[in-house]
Amino acid sequence: MKLPESYLEYSERSYGLDHDRHDWIPADRRDPLQLKSGKKAAAFIVVPLEFFPLDPPAKPFSHPGSMKTPYPDLRHYTTRDYGNRVGVYRILKALADVGLKATFAVNAAVADRYSPLLKAVEQAGHEIAAHGVSTAHIHHEGLSCQQEEEFIARCRAEFPDAKTWMSPARNQTYRTLDLLAKAGFEVCLDWEPDQRPLALRTENGSITSLPLMNELSDFTLLLDRRQQADDWARQILEAAQFHLDAYADAGAQCFGFTLTPYIVGQPFRVLSLKNLLSGLVGMPELEVVTAAQVSSLFLLPGQA
Rank of each mutant, 00 (worst) to 15 (best):
F151A: 03
A108H: 05
N107A: 06
H126N: 14
S144H: 06
F104A: 12
D112T: 08
A108L: 10
E122A: 15
K119S: 15
D112N: 12
D112C: 04
V106D: 07
V133R: 00
V133T: 01
R113N: 06
L118W: 12
V106N: 03
E122W: 05
L117W: 03
E141P: 02
S134M: 00
S134A: 00
Q146K: 11
F151W: 11
Q123R: 15
I138W: 06
E148D: 08
Y114L: 07
V110E: 05
A109F: 09
L118K: 15
L117P: 03
K119T: 14
V133M: 01
T135C: 12
A109M: 10
G142V: 06
H140Y: 15
L117Q: 01
E150A: 14
G132W: 04
A130E: 10
R113Q: 09
V106A: 06
A109P: 00
V121L: 08
P116D: 13
A111E: 07
A129G: 11
N107S: 07
F151V: 01
G142F: 05
A105T: 00
A130W: 13
G142R: 02
L143E: 01
F151T: 00
K101G: 08
E141H: 14
P116V: 06
H140T: 02
A108R: 05
E141C: 07
H131G: 05
Y114V: 06
I138A: 00
D112S: 12
H137Q: 11
F151R: 04
A109S: 13
A153D: 11
L143Y: 04
F151S: 01
I128A: 09
H139N: 13
I128G: 05
H140I: 02
Q123P: 11
E122C: 12
A124I: 11
Y114E: 09
H126K: 03
I152A: 05
Y114W: 10
E148I: 06
L118R: 10
A130F: 15
E150P: 08
V106W: 02
E149A: 09
T103D: 12
P116K: 04
H140P: 09
F151K: 03
A120K: 13
A136H: 03
Y114M: 10
L118I: 15
Q123V: 13
V106L: 10
E122Q: 15
S134Y: 01
Q146F: 07
A136T: 00
Q123T: 14
A136D: 09
C145F: 10
A153W: 02
A102C: 08
I138H: 00
I152C: 04
T135P: 00
H131R: 07
N107D: 06
G142W: 10
S144N: 10
T103I: 06
A105R: 00
A102T: 09
